[in-house]
Simulated scan of single mutants.
Amino acid sequence: MTLVSYAQATRTTRLRPVPQEFTHKLDRSEVLLTGWAPAGEDRVTVTARWPRTHSFYAPVAGRHDPMLLAETLRQSIPLISHGLYEVPLGHQLIWQHFTYEVAPGAMWADGPMDIELRITCDDITRRGGRLAALTMDIEILRDGLHLGSAHTRFSSHAPSIYRRLRGDRCTVSSDVAPLPLSGAVPVVPPALVNREHADDVVLSPTAVPDQWRLRVDYAHPILFDHPVDHAPGMLLLEAARQAAHAVQGHRADAVVPVRFESAFFRYVEFDAPCLITTRVEPATRPGGSDCVSVTAHQEGNEAFSCRVTLAAARA
């Protein structure tokens, strides 16, 4: 077997266009991926462009929002599944764990930004000849400079298997009554979570210190771009980000997340409250980064955890 280097693949292989349906986004303007091409055995190159600004993932302290990278990586999962491993449309792709980090010095936002993902797939599981799960290791570059890295594993389920897994909770968001978004479940002040608009806040206060209730808004155009039957992974990552800001108090706008280490244990359902709890891990050395451990519990079970590393925001 002859392996083709990423550099050789870039020189000799024409990037293929990204079909919108391969990103699982209904709004074409929210598709960040621009091209892709195989780059060897179980390897692929994916390109993406970030806009100068974004309605939800806006620049922070003169740098692109690190959550744009999370969404770029999320879109690459269905692209690779459908494009490289021929997973049929309609199969459900479910995160198991997801870790990524960015190099803050390479995130400056002086206009639209082109990035390259160099992805290696490993630990591939198949069921009945179809992809059932795989692990991705990703190197992220900007103009040849190191921008970040990521490691993730996800599973793939045929519709019939997924319906058996979900049982009577296999009901998409457009068909269930939403939990209240105001009144009994108010929104936390946007500034507390480093947000400008209340509609973009995904946490509601509780009587317990450093604990919030997950706020689910099916009408949100970014987090709920298409109908789903459980809380999307990007919503949980955003909740972790906002909770990490919230525990900073008056320093909420003085830090940015640079690393997420997350694990998805159970589906977060729409018909029961989900509680988000945080614990601050102080820096181990002077001038070091703080880490915030975030957990999501529902119906007495831990459904999601995320360790968020924060760094000082510098314009």
Rank of each mutant, 00 (worst) to 15 (best):
Phe98Arg: 09
Val188Ser: 04
Val258Ala: 06
Glu30Arg: 06
Ser81Cys: 14
Asp200Gly: 01
Pro189Asn: 06
Ser305Asp: 00
Val294Leu: 10
Gln8Ala: 03
Gln75Thr: 02
Tyr57Arg: 05
Gly183Phe: 14
Arg266Glu: 01
Val172Pro: 15
Gly167Val: 01
Asn301Glu: 09
His91Asp: 01
Pro51Gln: 14
Asp175Arg: 14
Glu269Tyr: 15
Ile161Ser: 13
Val172Ala: 09
Leu3Trp: 03
Ala150Val: 03
Arg142Phe: 12
Trp108Thr: 03
Ala106Lys: 11
Glu71Ala: 10
Gly105Glu: 12
Lys25Cys: 01
Leu147Arg: 04
Glu261Met: 08
Leu68Thr: 01
Pro59Met: 00
Leu235Gly: 01
Met136Trp: 09
Arg153Glu: 00
Ser5Asp: 10
Ala184Met: 10
Leu214Gly: 09
Phe154Met: 13
Val46Trp: 15
Val255Gln: 10
Arg215Tyr: 02
Pro282Ile: 08
Val87Leu: 13
Ser160Phe: 10
Trp212Cys: 08
Ala106His: 15
Glu196Arg: 09
Ala158Cys: 12
Asp110Cys: 05
Ile138Pro: 09
Arg163Asn: 02
Gln20Trp: 07
Ala207Ile: 10
Ala58Gly: 03
Leu145Arg: 07
Ala58Glu: 05
Pro59Lys: 01
Val60Ala: 11
Tyr6Phe: 15
Ala9Ile: 05
Leu93Met: 13
His97Val: 00
Arg153Ile: 00
Leu68Asn: 03
Arg259Asp: 00
Phe98Ala: 01
Tyr218Gly: 13
Asp210Cys: 07
Ala240His: 03
Pro257Gly: 03
Thr278Arg: 09
Gly300Gln: 15
Pro273Gly: 13
Pro232Ile: 13
Asp199His: 13
Val4Trp: 11
Thr171Tyr: 15
Gly35Cys: 12
Ser182Ala: 14
His197Val: 05
Ser174Tyr: 10
Pro19Glu: 11
Arg43Asn: 06
Val46His: 13
Tyr100Arg: 13
Arg266Phe: 04
Ala39Phe: 14
His245Glu: 00
Gly288Ile: 04
His64Leu: 10
Asp137Pro: 03
Trp36Thr: 00
Ser160Trp: 15
Ala303Tyr: 09
Val172Glu: 06
Gln242Asp: 02
Val87Gln: 04
Ile115Arg: 06
His297Ala: 11
Phe224Asn: 03
Ala252Asp: 00
Phe98Trp: 14
Ala132Asn: 07
Glu302Arg: 15
Cys274Asn: 02
Pro17Ala: 08
Thr125Pro: 04
Leu15Val: 07
Thr125Lys: 11
Leu181Phe: 07
Thr34Asp: 05
Leu223Phe: 07
Thr277Glu: 12
Pro186Leu: 09
Ile138Cys: 14
Val87Glu: 09
Arg28Cys: 09
Arg127Asp: 11
Trp36Ser: 03
Gln298Phe: 12
Arg28Tyr: 08
Tyr85Arg: 06
Pro38Arg: 12
Gly233Glu: 02
Cys170Ile: 03
Arg166Met: 10
Glu71Trp: 09
